[in-house]
Design a protein around this nucleic acid. Sequence first.
DNA 1: GCGTATGGTGTATGCGCTTACATCTTCCGC
DNA 2: GCGGAAGATGTAAGCGCATACACCATACGC
Lengths: 338, 338
Amino acid sequence: MHRDDTANPRATRPNVYDVAQLAGVSIATVSRVRRGNGPVADATRERVQAAMTELDWQPSAPARALAGERHEAVGIVFPELSGRYYAEVIRGFEARAVEASAAALILAAHERPDSEAMVRDLAARVDGLIIMDRTIGDDTAAIVERRGVPVVLLARPPVDDIPAVRVENVEVTRELTAHLLTHGWRRLVFLGDPDRSPDVAQRWRGFQQAHADEGLDVPRAPLLANGYQLTDGSAAALGALDGADPPDGIVCANDELASGVYEAAELLDLAVGAELAVTGWDDQPLAERLAPPLSTVHQPMSELGARAAACLIDRIEGRHVVSETLATRVQVRHSCGC
Amino acid sequence: MHRDDTANPRATRPNVYDVAQLAGVSIATVSRVRRGNGPVADATRERVQAAMTELDWQPSAPARALAGERHEAVGIVFPELSGRYYAEVIRGFEARAVEASAAALILAAHERPDSEAMVRDLAARVDGLIIMDRTIGDDTAAIVERRGVPVVLLARPPVDDIPAVRVENVEVTRELTAHLLTHGWRRLVFLGDPDRSPDVAQRWRGFQQAHADEGLDVPRAPLLANGYQLTDGSAAALGALDGADPPDGIVCANDELASGVYEAAELLDLAVGAELAVTGWDDQPLAERLAPPLSTVHQPMSELGARAAACLIDRIEGRHVVSETLATRVQVRHSCGC
DNA sequence: GCGTATGGTGTATGCGCTTACATCTTCCGC
DNA sequence: GCGGAAGATGTAAGCGCATACACCATACGC
């Protein structure tokens, strides 16, 4: 025996040896019963199961991972957990992970300077990793992948052999912008920072293309906000609307920014929908509740996380997967004047 | 050597032996360099570090956990990840966990039938566990604790030796309700299910006590909703407002339900604030944006998660901790008629 | 009746790391 | 000049599990 059996067995967590001893079998049999593989006589199985219950034994996850080379865990790296979008993505991710009986690890890369190291540490404790948005560089993703941990990119472009799950951004923003332009709004600005998110970069491109399509001057620079929260939107909008040559329409990179624009418009006594067009992105429940109801783009947020998780699990299990683009659609309400 | 060195070393992840061999030292020295403990000559340290970098070595988390008996990971179990409240709590939790350089595991217990087993499985791969709200029973929490995994309860009452982190619910709801009553609203109902959440149960109690304080009939039953989303609120409110003896004020268990009540009021052509008082709970950013701005109770959502994580880490490191109750405050806006 | 599948079980090794302990140098004090 | 402390490094024994392989029955073939 590997341990002093005269000591109080309750002083520490039970292990296979304890169960085996109590059931009067070897650890191999205990393992076979637990895993449900290999042949075991019915009577033996019952004895072992009784022992497991009696000792309240739960196998050590690290030990299993070490012996079996599988962590039964997946991780997701995202920039931050503020705003509904990320919460929904993580919700979808977690649900799919649990369905595959894998533990779900999360890491908010934030603007943390050591995020690359943290990601690599995370990679050492999962079977696969989802890397989302503007968090860490493609090179780190490649390193993780090279180390044998499959990666799926989320809301960013695929690289080399690493597949990505994204939503359609360009065409739908083009359509949305065209909608505004054909309804007579002419001095549109785009609110969001293309440099800080691949998604936003694509939306900005769609916004520009719509102008080109109509033969209009193509906007050269977006209106930048400090972040993607309501207050960021109101601050940026206030500056633009109160300045020289104010816009008559603001295409926002998400719904929270749009809410901020509403706030700014209210302060400046501008009627949204009549004097100022505003559009969002995400189609959160709140979009419908704003006054006037917000025209926006619907994207399947939780499904995005779920699909990425599904792809990741496929990769872990050795199946070949390809990049996916999930559909989005313009959701017209009244903030565009309709 | 434990492995066939003629094989391509890149075919598998490098381990301590590879690093040790490359640096010309023993694995003990490699470990010492990595952990930064024990005495190591400067020259040796540099050689080892160079080897680690060259091989791009990341120690196996399971192996470390198995040898060191520490997972360097903490987990949180919550009922669901819909709604801002849970997202914020998890945000605070994750931030604090990472600060303590622990990985963050999440598990949505949902209404999953096997959630108890899932929690026990989760408990086998963390150093400590936060159990939130109505997820799993106290008995399972006790089992986890008895197995040597410290538990901190979140938004539910402490039991035995398991500390809890909560917000103040009773007094503040009493104050909020009294505010409504003294402003002339008389036929108040409480919207939420006390049986499904300890927090809501306390809020319901505060609601009742306010009536008793004023010498009024104490409401005997709350208005139940199917969940805590906007649509749940509107459905429930629609039924109540459209029935016999409609209420003139609705005290909601969270802001999303209150938004739903707004929707119902709109459908029935009732002016919130004038003909119908509505209050929420959470004080989400959206509360301020509703028309009229929502009177609600402010609670420190992300701090709740952060404090729980801090307590958990204290417990893991052997420090004694006591239960905490975080302060809340009534945030009067206009939906109560003020 | 003996050889041989086959089901049931045990033994022993390895997963990659930490660490107590052993070993071997230096270098200092007297 | 010698004993011994202190520094530097190596050796080996686990941590708890999975599993290849060995082993022992029994049952069946002919």
